[in-house]
Amino acid sequence: AREMGVIAAMRDGFGFIKCVDRDVRMFFHFSEILDGNQLHIADEVEFTVVPDMLSAQRNHAIRIKKLPKGTV
């Protein structure tokens, strides 16, 4: 199932999404941004959540798609 959120932080090559449906900041890597979009803080996005290979306690966001403002 796809989830929605807002870009909360951007770093060098990765960032975090503030999720709508869960009280966490979800890690993502820039390589998972679809359509070659440039994302910025406060952009609204949808994404798929998958378990982190390195840590069973953590998840991360993949297949991130920018949404029109006002969607979330």
Rank of each mutant, 00 (worst) to 15 (best):
L34H: 05
A61C: 12
D52M: 09
A56Q: 10
S31F: 06
M53K: 15
E3T: 08
N37F: 07
C19F: 07
F16M: 10
P68E: 09
R25C: 09
R22N: 12
K65W: 01
A1F: 12
I17M: 01
M4D: 00
A8C: 13
D35R: 05
E3I: 10
R22S: 10
D12M: 04
G70H: 10
H60R: 15
F27D: 01
V45I: 06
H29V: 12
T71F: 03
K69Y: 04
M53W: 10
R11W: 08
I33S: 04
N37H: 15
D12K: 08
A8N: 06
K69E: 05
F16H: 05
G15T: 00
E44P: 04
R63H: 12
M53P: 15
V72P: 02
Q38G: 07
I41V: 13
G70L: 01
E3S: 10
L39K: 05
R22H: 12
D23N: 15
F28V: 03
Q38W: 05
D21A: 09
V49N: 10
I7K: 00
A42L: 10
E32H: 15
E32I: 13
V45M: 01
A42K: 07
V72I: 14
Q38L: 07
L39V: 08
C19P: 12
V24N: 13
K18E: 15
H60P: 02
V45F: 00
I41D: 08
V50Y: 08
I7T: 03
C19Y: 04
L54S: 15
L34R: 07
G15E: 00
I17Q: 00
H60L: 09
P68H: 06
K65R: 11
E3V: 06
L34W: 05
V45A: 01
D21V: 06
M26W: 08
R11A: 15
H60G: 03
I62K: 10
P68D: 07
R25Y: 10
L39M: 05
M4A: 05
I7L: 01
R63D: 11
F16L: 10
V49M: 07
M53T: 08
E3G: 07
K69S: 10
A42S: 08
K18T: 12
F27S: 08
G15R: 00
L34Q: 11
V49F: 05
E46I: 04
H40T: 12
H60E: 09
E44N: 05
R63Y: 05
I33K: 03
I7N: 02
M26E: 03
K66W: 03
R22Y: 06
D12A: 08
N59G: 14
H29F: 08
G36I: 06
M26R: 06
I64T: 03
F14N: 08
H29S: 14
L67M: 04
E44Y: 03
R25G: 08
L34P: 05
F30N: 08
A1I: 05
A8V: 13
L39Q: 00
Q57N: 13
M53E: 12
D52F: 06
V24H: 03
A1R: 14
S55V: 04
V49W: 02
A42V: 01
R22D: 07
A56R: 13
G70Q: 01
I62P: 00
L67H: 04
D12Y: 07
I17S: 01
Q38H: 14
A56E: 14
